[in-house]
Amino acid sequence: MKFAVVVFPGSNCDHDAYHAVKHVLGQDAEFVWHKDASLRGADVVLLPGGFSYGDYLRTGAIARFSPIMREVTRFAAGGGPVIGICNGFQVLLECGLLPGAMLRNRSVQFQCEFVHVRVEQVDTPFTAACVPGQVLRIPIAHGEGNYYAEPDVLTALEANRQVIFRYTTASGDVTEAANPNGSLNNIAGICNTQRNVVGLMPHPERACELAVGSRDGLVVLESVVKSVSSAGGALAGSPQ
């Protein structure tokens, strides 16, 4: 199974995602340059973290215009699994593949630390191997991860079970203190209505080996391998 790791100018978690997929998970991974027009037959698309275009206008605001994003949008429309992590999530918000927006963290500071997130739904390709309510200990590293959506959008997200990850305590309780950045409803990650596009602020790819503090994030990548395999590769809806 092949993962396309999209590289924007300013991506800086691209190597980490590649390492997690290729060397920890043992799957094929390929960097895809943002100016490329093809995903080269990938089964999964991963938009990594970083500061695409320096995040100078708004986080992810310029990356959405990269040529590869047209292909990513088509791939997603065809049902292909797409995950955006941190800046990748921000890009997905900017290009409209996911609803809502990011505000600066409540602390008005960049925050890098381990947090706990609860898996809310397991019917997405990126949570299929999780147990409902499973709590993952994975790190965040962002300055703008304070998720915001208009009230009607938020209501719809909750009604459609599109909230996939929520910040909680270690025991899985949604509390204000467990919310690191002020996100509405403690939202850490969401999916689209088709459920094949997932974005989250925490970094599962940074939590795939005990040596670096946790392997709780690996299940997210394992999930998509399981989903694509059991669908016989049929998830990838882009014409190859």
Partner: peptide
């Protein structure tokens, strides 16, 4: 201080 620094990117940090 160090919470404001990304000390985990590149996934090599064994002791934070």
């Amino acid at each position: 201080v160090y919470r404001q620094y990304d000390h985990m990117v590149r996934t090599n940090t064994l002791v934070t």
